[in-house]
Computed example of a mutant assay.
Amino acid sequence: MGYAVGNKVGRQNYDADYQTGRVAGQNDGIANKFTDNGQQSVGYQDGYVNGQRLGTQFYNNAKTEGAADGTKTGEAGRAPADLNGQPQGYQDGYTSAYAAGKASYDTDYQTGRTTGQTDGTANKHTDNSNQSAGYQDGYVNGQRLGEQFYNNAKTEGVTDGTKAGEAGQVPADLNGQPQGYQVGYTSAYEVGKAGYDTDYQTGQAAGQSAGESNQVPADLKDQSQGYQDGYTSAYETGKAAMIPTTKMVR
């Protein structure tokens, strides 16, 4: 009778300690830690081992989920999520995975930015749909900067090309100039030179007529460079044609 009573009491104590240990073990497992229970009862120790195993499973599952979310967020270049209220496993998985994902994003961003800027400067675009989010974001930013450089260089080239063409000058050597400058200069020079040539012919006709008529040269200050050059050249030619040839008497 005494044995039965004692056994019952002992079992009750074991079960109570087991539950207490199980709760403590599960809490430690969820937090990814371990507590030395060498001084605790057998029931407590057994419960702790079982509870920690369950808690560790929960921790690992949460960590896997956090790692997936952290990687996704980091590789997208987004700000990290607020982890308050998330279990320890999720926080641990998210934090380390986010750091790795964001580092990858940043590296790809710089690579894409360099390529985009090079393409923008050359006034072209490359399909990056198969590249990472970081690369694509960097490319867009870099190309925008490159396009600004291209447009500024093109504007400068247009100004210089127009000036050279309208002055009837030989076109400049564009080797070493950026693509934008070359494109702007070339097209503007052609237009300017065409205008010069047209004005030159108009001025040439007027100058020839004035010279052959022995008129006083016209005031050309308001005329274009092409007109002035054509007029001046033809006027002297026309005037020279009007000088009579004198025969020498022996």
Results as ranks from 00 to 15, higher is better:
52 Q>W: 06
124 K>L: 00
214 N>H: 07
153 A>Y: 03
193 K>S: 04
84 N>Q: 13
6 G>D: 15
10 G>C: 04
194 A>G: 03
220 L>Y: 05
123 N>W: 00
14 Y>N: 08
13 N>Y: 09
241 A>M: 07
172 A>T: 03
27 N>D: 13
194 A>F: 03
148 Q>P: 05
82 D>Y: 10
100 A>S: 14
35 T>F: 11
156 E>C: 00
172 A>M: 05
185 Y>P: 06
4 A>H: 14
69 D>P: 05
185 Y>K: 02
167 A>I: 00
211 G>S: 11
55 G>S: 07
4 A>Y: 14
130 N>C: 03
104 S>Q: 13
165 G>V: 03
180 G>E: 01
104 S>F: 06
162 T>E: 11
122 A>Y: 00
121 T>Q: 10
235 Y>F: 11
223 Q>R: 13
41 S>L: 05
245 T>C: 08
24 A>T: 10
22 R>H: 13
120 G>H: 01
65 E>C: 01
223 Q>G: 04
186 T>Q: 11
151 N>C: 00
52 Q>D: 05
193 K>H: 09
162 T>Y: 06
143 Q>M: 05
105 Y>I: 03
230 G>F: 01
130 N>E: 12
192 G>K: 04
109 Y>F: 14
239 K>D: 06
129 S>T: 13
149 F>K: 09
180 G>T: 00
82 D>E: 10
195 G>K: 12
94 Y>C: 04
18 Y>F: 15
10 G>K: 15
136 Q>R: 14
43 G>C: 05
65 E>Y: 03
215 Q>N: 14
160 D>N: 09
69 D>E: 12
100 A>M: 09
32 N>Y: 12
212 E>Q: 15
65 E>D: 09
79 A>M: 14
115 T>L: 07
78 R>H: 14
236 E>R: 14
56 T>E: 08
184 G>A: 01
212 E>G: 13
192 G>Y: 05
105 Y>F: 15
34 F>C: 04
138 G>N: 06
15 D>N: 15
21 G>H: 07
36 D>I: 08
167 A>F: 03
183 V>C: 00
245 T>I: 10
127 D>L: 02
23 V>D: 13
157 G>C: 03
7 N>F: 14
145 L>F: 07
192 G>L: 04
50 N>Q: 14
234 A>P: 11
21 G>C: 07
61 N>W: 01
150 Y>E: 02
129 S>H: 06
201 Q>N: 13
162 T>P: 06
249 V>D: 11
188 A>V: 07
135 Y>Q: 04
139 Y>R: 03
170 V>N: 13
248 M>G: 10
214 N>W: 02
106 D>F: 02
44 Y>C: 09
41 S>Y: 08
78 R>V: 10
237 T>E: 12
198 T>E: 10
37 N>Y: 04
21 G>P: 07
185 Y>F: 11
18 Y>L: 08
33 K>P: 07
86 Q>S: 09
235 Y>D: 01
179 Q>D: 05
176 G>E: 08
28 D>M: 10
192 G>V: 04
78 R>N: 15
101 G>Q: 06
154 K>A: 02
102 K>D: 14
147 E>Q: 12
181 Y>N: 02
31 A>I: 02
26 Q>H: 12
19 Q>T: 12
158 V>N: 02
147 E>C: 00
25 G>N: 11
67 A>M: 07
233 S>L: 10
209 S>L: 01
14 Y>F: 14
87 P>V: 03
240 A>K: 15
231 Y>E: 00
237 T>N: 12
